[in-house]
Design a protein around this nucleic acid. Sequence first.
DNA 1: TTCCAGGAGGTCT
DNA 2: AGACCTCCTGGA
Length: 311
Amino acid sequence: MGLDIHYLDNKVVINNIKNFNIKQICECGQCFRWKKEKENNYIGVAYGRVIEVLQEDDTVTIYNASEEDFKNIWIKYFDLERDYSKIKDILSQDEILKVALEYGYGIRILNQDPFELVISYIISARNSIPVISKTINNICEAYGKKLDYKGKIYYAFPTIEELSKASVEEIKNLGGSFRSKYIVDTTNKIYMCNLAKEKKLDESKEIIEELLEKYDLEKIKNMSDNDCHKALQEFKGIGAKVSDCIMLFSMQKYSAFPVDIWVKRAMIHFYGANDTSLNKIRVFAREKFGELSGFAQQYLFYYAREKGIKF
DNA sequence: TTCCAGGAGGTCT
DNA sequence: AGACCTCCTGGA
């Protein structure tokens, strides 16, 4: 991919970038830790780092990023090696989808950290975006490492081990609400599974086998899309929709099609789908969009939410 | 200005 | 099919 990249003093400049719009990327429902500073200027925390993105037309500058981090983390994070023109070409064979594709022309699906997304999307269930962000920030402040950027303090998302120290009561106080027990339970299962993998867990053979069998995020990430979708739902607090979000935004499973209220509205709006069950909409969409379902979902979601469509 | 009802990017039992 | 916690918003 001919990216026109220049490495300067702790910043990276990309010229002539295509299919990239930082507002659309940050506001299509896939991430919670990016904050708008100004138009086309966002600051975010990911993979234990703070970065700032400024977009001026087709020039994107990433501040607080070394060449090494850009190559090791941010290229993959922003999915810069994928040709989104090709995806849009294929999806635009569907005449109905064209409007949404043109509207969210600069959307990209971020590659985020699986554990962070497991917890973040458990928090998202039956919740609004401002409250989700606030709760996640509270958890980061309480358990994550401090990061400094431009004299301001930011907090990394806690590691599995850091968050394993949290109690249900503490998570409740941070805004976790009725989901707090799911967060603590899920974190502990993942943490104990990792201890078991390192043979550092003193438990019965049966318990260790169950942990390794069901709660290994690495293993789940390597499953087929359909197995992955099922496996994630073994965790408490993860149902079909949350599972789709996690696999799509952190495990590169692009046949996922998260159906929330906005996507449901979009499907009714565009395809005249009846007011039917979420699962029927999911099956219908995945048959229609196949391996590109996840991308289609992002365009539909962004269009529906920005336009505030009813049906 | 203050107050209350309704709703928010589902999942569990 | 109902309950669930909490914050935010809009209208009285």
